[in-house]
């Protein structure tokens, strides 16, 4: 009998996370006769199964227990590994959030194999399952075969795959399973969660990012960046240099030591394009660079470029976009 493909579902700000939905789309392509199962661990699964169903899950497996109120590797890995040993899926796809990457690595080890992390594509080649992923901070791309004997675990980078369309007509088998919990409970306990202050910077999910670099000159230079980002409904990014200067906080940093992003539109203003920055944004769909220096490396990865003073160019763009988007 053909084995199933699992998608480990993760909760986002409201309902199922975007990355989970993206992976459901891909899992549908990879699934054979064994079909595709979305597996969710949580203290409360209300609305989750219905949403997973609308995004194409053939089966939904819900593991509901208070032990899953907050992610903790002890209980999540224990319960998922027990279920995986019983059901023996061929492939397990995990959203590549920070906790998701921890889960993927630990789950693969619990099942005797190894995880391939932060994949940007997954496909079959005969019996082999291959994934593309970045090495050396995006300077190299590798095709990696997961030869684990048991289930092959992959974590998937956000935005690796397009968001599938909802299908209200899809019907899934929904099953609630009693999770096998770790005896003695979790050895780790969340004491408190300190949410980032102010507006949450979610660069990973943003469709538009306007980023500023050293060319801004001062922290106040970010004002023009924020105005353009507001008009486009986007997020504000930054290069490492300006974060190090204290002009903006670390959650805004794009690049090897910051976030890896893949928005539909990335506008780099006054960013020269150090290799570490490029590693974090070069796969964006459309890249626009604005820089005084026509030889800045950022122009090598950009689709459109303007050589000029960002304090003249960016306000003009803000005005033009405002007109165009209102019209």
């Amino acid at each position: 009998m053909s084995r199933s493909i699992w998608v480990i579902a993760e909760r986002g700000a409201s309902g199922v996370s975007r990355t989970t939905k993206e992976i459901l789309g891909k899992a549908g392509e990879l699934a054979g006769e064994g079909g595709m199962t979305a597996v969710y661990c949580g203290a409360d699964a209300s609305g989750i199964a219905e949403e997973l169903q609308r995004y194409g899950a053939g089966r939904v497996c819900l593991l509901v227990d208070g032990a899953f109120e907050h992610y903790n590797a002890d209980q999540f890995v224990h319960a998922l590994a027990a279920l995986a040993r019983e059901k023996d899926p061929e492939i397990i796809l995990v959203p590549g959030s920070m906790n998701g990457r921890e889960l993927a690595a630990a789950l693969a080890a619990a099942l005797g194999g190894g995880a391939v992390q932060e994949c940007i594509d997954i496909r079959r080649d005969g019996d082999a399952v291959l994934a593309d992923r970045a090495f050396l901070g995006g300077n190299l791309t590798a095709v990696v075969e997961n030869r684990s004997e048991g289930p092959k675990v992959f974590s998937v980078r956000p935005k690796a795959f397009p968001l599938p369309a909802e299908d209200a007509g899809n019907a899934a088998d929904i099953e609630e399973v009693t999770p096998v919990l770790r005896e003695g409970g979790s050895r780790t306990k969340r004491v408190e969660f300190l949410a980032d202050e102010g507006k949450t910077v979610n660069l990973t999910d943003a469709d538009v990012i306007v980023s500023g670099g050293r060319g801004l000159g001062t922290a106040e230079g970010f004002d023009v960046i924020r105005e353009l980002a507001d008009v486009l409904g986007g997020a504000v990014g930054a290069s490492r240099a300006v974060v190090d200067n204290g002009w903006i906080s670390y959650p805004h940093q794009v690049g090897q030591t910051g976030k890896t992003v893949k928005p539909k539109l990335y506008i780099a203003c006054g960013i020269s394009g150090a290799i570490q920055h490029l590693a974090g944004m070069r796969t964006s769909d459309t890249i626009v660079a604005i820089n005084k220096d026509e030889n800045a490396p950022i122009f090598k990865v950009a689709h459109f470029g303007i050589v000029g003073d960002l304090f003249e160019v960016v306000p003009q763009l803000t005005a033009r976009f405002r007109e165009a988007l209102q019209g």
Binding site: G114, F135, G138, T141, A142, N146, R147, E149, T283, K300
Partner: peptide
Amino acid sequence: PTRMRSLAPPPAPSGVEMIEGEVEEAA
């Protein structure tokens, strides 16, 4: 348990289109 089949620089970018002209026009 994992094995690489290939390792290469990511595909070269398609090339940049520079927008010339006065600021207002270029924008």
